[in-house]
Design a protein around this nucleic acid. Structure first.
Length: 823
RNA sequence: GCGCGAUUGGCGGAAUUGGCAGACGCAAUAGACUUAGGAUCUAUCGGGCGACCGUGGGGGUUCAAGUCCCUCAUCGCGCACCA
């Protein structure tokens, strides 16, 4: 150990040591309790950004802490390495996507190693390797066999810039989640996964996820969007099919004054062909089809639509009502048609006002100031039923049940549950993804490839044009094959899978990353799963986290895993910002991890990022703050350098004699306790570090004393190194070695604190008069209420304080405070 | 519009169960050491001369409120014609 803290030399030295000694390699040890800590694996864009550094620093503290606490820790890392940027690089610079990707992976791995992260690199996965996507294809086939994968033609979200379709989840505010272009619609035949079959379980299980942030659970709940109501059949006059609608308010059936169908509704053609309304209807349909989602939502509230010249019959009272089409009714929710009750629905109210339609109230508000016959806006609250024949007079909530019963009796409707969640569109017209292992045969239809023929390798004889069709279609050899079932000439699917499939099971692959015979060994998965702590950005709250839950449930149903849920605890880390803004190239406020590590070292970077804010909050980058963390590490280093000789020669056992001894022993144990709780359970690394700082300050005070208990001092210094080591591992290894240890600090046991050292004989308590602090006294600890009150009240200063006052009440909280209520 | 979450010194933040508001750090000020200091050490550091006042504003519950309840404001995030 040099006199000066040379982080460069120290960090290289210990990174080499860990690598050579395979310090972080982990195997299944069924005799030991496991702990699986996982950080969301990155897309290999080339360089780490501060968000990665924060994510991995948090995970590394947890991993190192749990390892020292005796757990068999699985802490893996890998790359979500399929995806568009690689292909765009190919189009732009002519580099092979594989080459571009693997060189980025190499660079990022190097950067992660420079950070001193405790990953078991032997378990690294990259989703773009045939070893990985072989099993992705196998999984797809299992889904297909279970009836969970199907192909169908549908209007789909189409990103004109990425030239591919998008899942609903990937359309944010009408724009492509990736590139921000306005998303349009296109009719295409595509592969889907039946996630809607799991809607109820995905929703129900959210309750059980106690270790998840409420925010994420709420977001998923809203996304699944369950609503309970009824399906009701309306006859259409002079038409042989019935119009089915979904409503959450069957109690308002008597208030129906018109119907609205989505412009895409399949009946419309037959209902209008050859009529005087046909032209206007067609015109409206075309207008709506041309609009992008943004245009549609930008005019939300302003209702448009046309009457189609037809009438529907209310099944409860036989009333005939006109049928309209309007874009406020969506084809892909419910049945694509609604019953309109303008009195009790805001949208219907707006529409009725605009088109001069009748408004019939059927729920009487309790508030007498609302005139139900002259509504200014829709009345959507609860009340008593009116104008509803035999249901009149009931509470409307009760009427919902009664009317559903009646509908079911009459066979004109039924109770129904609807979800916003749609099936997951997984086809992508791109190259750099897992080929969908399906073959189309003219005789047999779609047939999965034989499992022994997997993986279906990505062809390399392709052209990257960036145009509408999958580049795989340009391969001369890929598509041509024979039907696995009948042997006839057949052709392969040329689309690839959405990369979100790859990341929906990587946490299982880590359990058994090198397995060549299975996606993972269920026995190993049973040992490691589930993930005890998952850490990543909140931007994955819906997409990745819900897809992964879906996959896990399917695996559960296939008997491959023992739990329905993959992630026991979830920590969503906050963003790293600078000057109050998100770091971005255009603002020019980006701080590069490389630069910081080069200037101060990885330990400083890690320490600062953990100290500056609690992990789930935004972190405002501060250059001065980094200096502070650097100064702190230097301060610790100097302390150990100065005291090491003394400490090495100190005896092991000691007695606490002086009050200074007691103070140091107290601080040492208090710090261990605090760090144990904050790093191990509460995940408040900022306060953990601040308590380590307090210990350092206390040791600095102590070492200046004339009479020292060197054994105690040595103990304090060693404990300090141990509890600091998960945060700043390199410097701690160096100091630990300098203290005379040959074993890596990573392999040491986490220190246990001594509860008795935390008990003080005397404590400063507060005396309040009418809730205001007036005096502070040193009082013996551990007294009961009466003795505590007596001890305080008999104090001369308190007696003086109470001079001439009448004591009305005394509230005693032993070891804390005494509040005297006086007049 | 609906649903979350936040708001504490000059700044980042602490206060875990209702019990001393401001731990720890940054910045700042003064001093020491020094040829020098952007190193290190020591001290001060919410406001007010003070009684006291202070956790976004107003109200409430309580012996006691940053913490619980009501209400308003601002900022951030999510969803957004979901029948």
């Amino acid at each position: 150990m040099n006199e000066k803290y040379d982080f460069n030399e120290i960090e290289r030295k210990w990174q080499k040591y860990w690598e050579e000694n395979k310090s972080f390699k982990v195997t299944e040890d069924y005799s030991k309790e496991k702990y699986y800590v996982l950080e969301m694996f990155p897309y290999p864009s080339g360089k780490l950004h501060m968000g990665h550094v924060r994510n991995y620093s948090i995970g590394d503290v947890v991993a190192r802490f749990k390892h020292m606490s005796g757990f068999n820790v699985l802490h893996p890392m890998g790359y979500d390495s399929f995806g568009l940027p690689a292909e765009n690089a190919a189009i732009k610079n002519g580099v092979e996507p594989a080459e571009w990707t693997y060189s980025n992976i190499a660079e990022m791995t190097e950067q992660m190693k420079r950070m001193g992260l405790s990953y078991d690199w032997d378990r690294e996965v990259a989703t773009c390797t045939p070893e990985y996507y072989k099993w992705m294809q196998w999984i797809f086939i299992q889904f297909y066999k279970k009836g969970l994968a199907y192909k169908k033609e549908n209007p789909v979200n189409w990103c004109p810039s990425c030239q591919t379709v998008l899942a609903n989840e990937q359309v944010v505010g009408g724009c492509c989640e990736r590139c921000g272009s306005a998303v349009g619609k296109k009719n295409l035949s595509q592969w889907y996964l039946k996630i809607t079959d799991y809607a109820e379980r995905l929703l129900e299980n959210l309750e059980k996820l106690e270790g998840w942030p409420q925010k994420v659970k709420t977001m998923q709940k809203n996304w699944i969007g369950r609503s309970v109501g009824a399906e009701v059949e309306f006859e259409i006059k002079d038409f042989d099919k019935k119009l089915e609608i979904f409503t959450t308010r069957p109690d308002t059936l008597y208030g129906v004054t018109y119907m609205v169908m989505s412009p895409e509704h399949p009946f419309i053609e037959a209902l209008t062909v050859g009529t005087e309304y046909e032209a206007a209807v067609k015109e409206y349909q075309e207008k709506v089809q041309k609009m992008t989602d943004i245009e549609r939502t930008s005019t939300a509230g302003e209702k448009t639509g046309v009457f189609i010249g037809r009438y529907a019959v209310n099944p409860l009272n036989g009333k005939e009502v006109p049928i309209y089409i309007s874009d406020y009714v969506l084809m892909d929710y419910g049945t694509g048609a609604i019953m309109a009750v303008p009195a009790h629905d805001e949208r219907d109210f707006d529409f009725a006002k605009k088109f001069g339609l009748e408004i019939i109230p059927v729920v009487q508000p309790e508030d007498p100031s609302v005139d139900v016959n002259h509504l200014e806006q829709a009345f959507v609250a609860e009340g008593k039923m009116i104008n509803s024949e035999m249901f009149t007079g009931m509470d409307n909530k009760q009427a919902i049940e009664k009317i559903i019963d009646y509908l079911e009796d009459q066979k004109i409707g039924r109770k129904a549950i609807n979800y916003k969640l749609r099936d997951w569109l997984i086809s992508r017209q791109r190259y750099w993804g897992t080929p969908i292992p399906m073959i189309y045969c003219e005789h047999c239809g779609w047939v999965p490839e034989k499992e022994e023929n997997l993986p279906i390798l990505l062809p390399t004889d392709v052209e990257f044009t960036g145009k509408g069709e999958s580049p795989i279609a340009t391969s001369k050899t890929f598509a041509e094959t024979v039907c696995p079932k009948c042997g006839a000439k057949a052709h392969r699917e040329v689309d690839t899978m959405d990369t979100f499939l790859d990341s929906s099971w990587y946490f299982l692959r880590y359990c058994d990353a090198r397995n060549e015979n299975a996606a993972f060994d269920p026995e190993k998965a049973k040992y490691w799963m589930n993930v005890d702590q998952y850490i990543g950005g909140v931007e994955h709250a819906i997409l990745h986290l819900m897809y992964s839950r879906f996959f896990q449930m399917v695996f559960y149903d296939l008997g491959l895993v023992k739990d329905e849920e993959p992630f026991k605890n979830l920590l969503t880390q906050g963003m790293v910002i600078k000057d109050g803004k998100k770091m971005s190239k255009s603002i020019g406020n980006v701080v590069s991890p490389e630069e910081i590590i080069g200037k101060y070292g990885a330990d400083t970077a890690r320490l600062f990022i953990l100290f500056a804010a609690p992990p789930d909050r935004e972190l405002d980058w501060s250059d001065a703050g980094v200096e502070g963390s650097y100064r702190f590490l230097n301060r610790v280093y100097r302390l150990v350098y100065e005291l090491a000789d003394q400490c090495r020669n100190a005896p092991k056992n000691y007695e606490i004699k002086s009050s200074a001894d007691k103070a140091l022993a107290y601080e040492m144990n208090a710090s261990i306790k605090k760090v144990t709780e904050d790093a191990g359970g509460r995940f408040m690394f900022n306060t953990a570090i601040s308590s380590i700082m307090e210990l350092v300050n206390e040791i600095y005070r102590y070492k200046e004393l004339d009479t020292l208990n060197t054994a105690l001092l040595a103990d304090a210094v060693e404990k300090l190194i141990l509890i600091l080591s998960p945060f700043a591992p390199h410097i701690c290894e160096e100091m630990w070695q300098h203290m005379g240890h040959s074993e890596s600090v990573y392999c040491e046991a986490w220190p246990v604190y001594d509860e008795t050292a935390l008990i003080k004989d005397e404590i400063e308590i507060v005396v309040q008069l009418n809730g205001k602090v007036k005096e502070k006294l040193n009082i013996q600890t551990n007294l009961d209420k009466t003795a505590f009150e007596k001890a305080v009240m008999e104090n001369d200063r308190i007696k003086a304080l109470l001079e001439g006052k009448e004591v009305i009440k005394v509230i005693a909280v032993p070891d804390k405070l005494l509040n005297i209520v006086v007049k």
